[in-house]
Amino acid sequence: MSEGQATLLLRKQLKELMRNPVDGFSAGLVDDSNVFEWAITIIGPPDTLYEGGFFNAIMSFPHNYPNNPPSVRFTSEMWHPNVYPDGRVCISILHAPGDDPNGYELASERWSPVHTVETILVSIISMLSGPNDESPANIDAAKEWRDSKDLFKKKVGRIVRKSQENF
């Protein structure tokens, strides 16, 4: 798919999200002149440790989208087993299409051009609801999630309050 086609597809997805907002997040362009960089705010899902938080992220699309996935990086502080310390989100659907070189994920779990901004963000909200600590991006958060739940809950509670103050 050409850059022009990617631009048209991203503009179409943005227009659809503006016309029919989805509960749990908001999305828009970082800069109106660049459809490949989106500013995202994810609202902490109800009945989770992240409930009530407002977490900002940047979604960066490759110029051959949807053949390859975007990257998503939280710019708000985040403590989660599936978020690298630098904020990058690590979930299967954001991994390049095809077979996993490490043999951990099935090709069907990885990126597919059928995914949209909406399905990606719904997957990230689901990740906040249920961490996968078997293949962590943040080993310290995963260890704490498994071994020191009270300490994990305190850290997340602090970042939720901080996100509310910064919103």
Rank of each mutant, 00 (worst) to 15 (best):
D150F: 10
I120K: 02
T75Q: 06
K149D: 09
E109G: 09
D100E: 08
I91E: 07
S126H: 09
V72E: 02
G130K: 12
T119V: 12
G98Q: 07
D133R: 03
I91S: 02
Y104S: 11
N102W: 13
R110A: 04
V122M: 13
S71Q: 14
M78H: 00
V156M: 11
I120T: 07
S148Q: 13
T116Y: 04
P97W: 02
Y84L: 10
V122A: 09
S126A: 15
M78G: 00
G103W: 08
P101F: 14
A137L: 09
P66V: 03
A141R: 01
N67C: 14
V117D: 06
E77Y: 13
I125H: 03
F152Q: 05
I139V: 15
L128C: 00
R146V: 10
V114H: 10
P69L: 05
H115N: 12
S92P: 00
D147M: 13
L94F: 04
S126F: 12
R146K: 15
V122K: 11
D140Q: 10
Y65N: 05
R73M: 08
D140R: 08
I91M: 07
V114Q: 12
K153G: 10
P131G: 03
D150C: 08
K149A: 13
Y84M: 09
V117N: 00
N82A: 03
T75A: 09
P70L: 07
P101V: 12
M127D: 06
Y84S: 07
A141W: 07
P69N: 04
F152Y: 15
S135M: 04
M127E: 04
A137W: 07
V83S: 01
I139T: 11
R110T: 03
N68V: 00
A141V: 04
W111F: 01
P66R: 06
D86P: 01
D99F: 05
P113V: 03
P97Y: 00
L94W: 02
G157S: 12
S129G: 15
S92D: 04
P70R: 00
R73S: 13
S92W: 02
T119I: 07
K155W: 08
K154F: 11
A141Q: 05
I120P: 02
P69V: 02
P113C: 06
P113H: 09
R158Q: 15
K143P: 05
L106E: 09
P101Y: 14
A107E: 14
R158N: 15
T119N: 11
C90P: 07
A137R: 11
V72R: 01
